[in-house]
Design a protein around this nucleic acid. Structure first.
Length: 422
RNA sequence: GGAGAGGUGGCCGAGUGGUCUAAGGCGCACGCCUGGAGAGCGUGUAUCCCUCAAAAGGGGAUCAAGGGUUCGAAUCCCUUUCUCUCCGCCA
């Protein structure tokens, strides 16, 4: 969430910049300002009363010790009123705090000044593109047919055992998955990331920390018995490692990489464009996370962008990088690059990675801070990106590399798969 | 899952209702001392909120978390949670 002091001092700026995200903030910002003022007013009264009663309690103690019981009794009688009053104020305070917080979490992050205006994906800005669209041989087919032909991914089996969107990977299909994961992890470790294996289920606090809750509640699978959430991305457990943590300036930058399965309900988004591997309820992803000094977060964003581009380049896939426009930018992000690979048989661009700078939006909610050189405690900036999500990369690899004699495995992967044709 | 013992500052650890404004130690920072280092000596060493133009100062909150008893709670009571030991189950 946004920092309250920033909203307090830059109301107009907040409203204007959220306008770029097509978010009408006028009313909300006003309500926040009111709740904030009220909260401070109540706290002042409460603190004053508590100061008085603390003073009286100390005096009573001294009176008892010196045997002046009558005087102590008189003073005690006086405290009764303060007690009632402070209880009232305490309740009002937490109520107002709760209201203020409920309002604050409704405000999206401010977009970076370079974010283009726009309402949807068509207004995203293509900032980089490489590779040629492959010329497919006459019998070429989309990946949902290829996986059947070579019997490497089985959706029917997934339907039987679980349901739609939970496929089985078999034989070379399973090995291809393993190879991609290993390649992605190794690349990140080479780039200085610490490899971490996170839990796949998290508690509600973690969901709030990274912003999945409350706004994307319906997108996560819930284990109701324990009130756990299945992670939609490794970003959630990894970033939450640092919830309520104060790092030192020397700890920065923190660079973590994690492979995990990801679980998404994708409620309401099922349709014709999501056949095969294009959209799944369970999929695999390698995620990179950085926690950096606020002054260096855009540098880190570019570094991550270069890293992800390097992976796609190594896989020899044609891809482009889109800078998201205001309307397409997520609730929590200040600046996002989407990576899209070209899937030749579908003749479509498929999003395989999203690299974002959240600035202090996540860290404010999570209380992720660091002690700077000047001795002050400040909010760190957080960033993350997929490096990469597997299913659509697999879809593109299968479609783009198909030949009459089978599917070619890119050279970098063959080291891991130990086969070069499917 | 059952039984028991616990959770105190960056760490160890004292503290069973009133200067706890949390002893003492370790660590860390700075200063003195030293040719230099160490030892020694001294000083400092959390977070959040309010007040203040700012700084200083002042006030409030925090001893796992939440609630309660009391004029007053680290200390007493309740709930939750986590850790450890033993038993059970188990990849």
């Amino acid at each position: 969430m946004l920092e309250l002091t920033y909203i307090r001092e830059h109301k107009q700026d907040v409203i204007r910049r959220l306008g770029i995200k097509n978010f009408k903030a006028v009313h909300l910002v006003d309500e926040i300002a009111q709740a904030d003022a009220e909260r401070r007013r109540i706290q002042k009264s409460l603190d004053d009363i508590l100061a008085e009663s603390n003073q009286a309690a100390r005096e009573i103690g001294i009176l008892y010790k010196s045997g002046r019981v009558d005087e102590a009794g008189e003073l005690k009688a006086k405290t009764a009123e303060w007690k009632v009053r402070s209880k009232e104020l305490g309740e009002k305070l937490s109520e107002t705090e709760q209201r203020l917080n409920d309002l604050l979490v409704q405000l999206p992050n401010l977009p970076h000044p370079s974010v283009p205006k726009g309402f949807s994906a068509e207004h995203n800005e293509n900032v980089y593109q490489e590779g040629n669209f492959p010329q497919l041989y006459p019998g070429a087919m989309p990946h949902w047919d290829l996986i059947r032909k070579y019997d490497i991914i089985d959706f029917e089996l997934g339907n039987k055992v679980t349901g739609a969107g939970f496929p089985f990977y078999k034989g070379k299909g399973a090995k291809l998955q393993r190879a991609l994961i290993a390649f992605f992890l190794d690349s990140a470790v080479k780039a200085g990331y610490l490899e971490v294996q996170p839990p796949l289920l998290v508690n509600a606090d973690s969901g709030y920390g990274t912003g999945q809750l409350p706004d994307k509640d319906g997108q996560m699978y819930v284990v109701t018995e324990e009130n756990f959430y299945l992670i939609p991305t490794a970003e959630v457990p990894i970033t939450n490692i640092y919830r309520n943590v104060i790092l030192t300036a020397n700890d920065l930058p923190v660079k973590n990489v994690a492979y995990s399965s990801c679980f998404r309900r994708e409620a309401g988004s099922w349709g014709k464009d999501v056949r095969g591997l294009n959209r799944l309820h369970q999929f695999d992803k390698v995620e990179i996370v950085q926690i950096v000094h606020p002054e260096r977060s855009y540098e880190a964003l570019e570094e991550m962008r270069t890293h992800v581009a390097g992976l796609l380049h190594a896989l020899e896939l044609p891809f482009r990088i889109m800078k998201l426009c205001g309307g397409d930018l997520s609730f929590t992000s200040a600046l996002t690059y989407d990576f899209e690979v070209y899937s030749a048989a579908q003749e479509r661009w498929l999003e395989v990675s999203s690299v974002s700078n959240f600035e202090s939006f996540q860290s404010n909610r999570m209380k992720l801070r660091f002690k700077d050189q000047d001795g002050k405690t400040k909010l760190a900036h957080t960033l993350n990106g997929s490096a990469l999500a597997l299913p659509r990369v697999v879809a593109a690899l299968l479609e783009n590399n198909q030949t009459a004699d089978g599917i070619k495995v890119p050279e970098v992967l063959a080291e891991y798969t130990r086969f070069d044709m499917i």
